[in-house]
């Protein structure tokens, strides 16, 4: 079976769920080899094996992560040249897409981003993309080079199937061009125990209607009862109530959970762009005219400070 490279997303060896989704997808289309860049492979190994990586190309050199994106693309380009895989899969995160793009230039290949599904049709990789906020569905193919596909998180249910995860060390001598944008400081915002926004099955978001950073505890309490991630509108983020990594929307994260609960969010077009492919949408807003109600499966017109705590309590009662 033909080899498919899967770029691993991880934090010091903590493998992200999207990588397990990509491995699951790659198994259906070929033989997945994971590409692990950075430190922490020993920690990652079991997970990668569990989800079917036959081989793992490991590149641990600190140089690879000390510069913005370019070194990762260089390493992948080397692997593509040396091993001629059938396709390269990356997660459609901000950085994943950038790696994919640079790799495409280096290998004169086509790149497709934000795929929600990927299939082999007559030997060609065909990606499904949901565009214009889910109002159109397109199928696209790469017509030259090695297909490079960036897949959205939450698109494939991850399923384990054990493989060896045999370690193959790779080294690359970076060109000067890969070392132009130096990361001099990493500022990590502590993220707590809640599920990751793009990976969560349920997301509860708060907007300007929440009113302050302290009052986000009302949103968090509901999220915790539901085992959900917490999201925020730009208005809430720009007011400093919630960190920008939680922003849902055009310039924030795109989420596609089973359930999205919008509290005190009007539903501006830029917010919708990040959440309207959610399976079930619920909103609480005191303004019956708020555009968010055009999207919902269930909406409550009312004060979120009455409705949300009552819902939180009711869920607790039913447990």
């Amino acid at each position: 079976m033909s080899e498919i490279l899967v770029l691993v997303e991880h934090t010091d060896g903590d493998v992200k769920k999207v990588t397990l989704e990509l491995l699951t997808k790659a198994r259906a289309l070929g033989a997945p080899s994971a590409v692990f860049i950075g430190s922490g492979f020993e920690k990652a190994k079991d997970k990668l094996a569990e989800y079917g990586a036959a081989k793992v190309y490991v590149a641990e050199s600190a140089e690879l992560t000390g510069y913005v994106v370019a070194p990762k693309a260089e390493l992948l380009a080397k692997l593509v040249t040396d091993h001629e895989p059938a396709a390269v899969l990356v997660a459609a995160t901000a950085e994943g897409k950038e790696v994919a793009g640079r790799l495409a230039v280096k290998t004169s290949s086509g790149v497709l981003t934000d795929a929600v599904d990927l299939n082999l049709v007559d030997g060609a990789f065909v990606a499904e993309q949901s565009i214009f906020g889910g109002s159109s569905i397109v199928h696209s193919a790469v017509t030259a080079g090695t297909p490079i596909i960036a897949m959205r998180p939450n698109a494939t249910p991850p399923a384990p199937e054990a493989a060896a995860a045999e370690r193959v060390d790779v080294e690359v001598t970076l060109t000067e061009a890969a070392k132009l944008a130096r990361v001099v400081e990493k500022v990590v915002v502590p993220k707590g125990d809640r599920p990751e926004l793009t990976e969560a099955a349920i997301v509860v978001s708060g907007g300007r209607g929440v009113g302050s950073a302290e009052k986000f505890s009302v949103i968090e309490a509901l999220a915790d009862q539901l085992g959900a991630a917490v999201g925020a509108s730009r208005a809430a983020v720009d007011s400093g109530w919630y960190p920008h990594q939680s922003q849902v929307g055009q310039t924030g994260k795109t989420v596609s959970p089973q359930l999205y609960v919008a509290c005190g969010i009007s539903g501006a077009i830029q917010h919708r762009a990040g959440m309207q492919t959610s399976k079930t949408i619920v909103a609480v807003n005191k303004d019956a005219e708020a555009p968010i109600f055009e999207l919902v499966d269930y909406g409550v017109v009312g004060d979120l400070f009455a409705v949300v705590p009552q819902a939180t309590e009711e869920i607790a009662k039913r447990k």
Binding site: T11, V68, T93, A94, E95, L180, A181, R182, V183, V184, E185, K186, V187, V188, V189, K191, P243, H244, Q245
Partner: peptide, 11 residues
């Protein structure tokens, strides 16, 4: 801006 916060980058 990154998933975990931000990087300070120089060039």
């Amino acid at each position: 801006l990154t998933d975990y916060g931000h990087d300070v980058v120089e060039a």
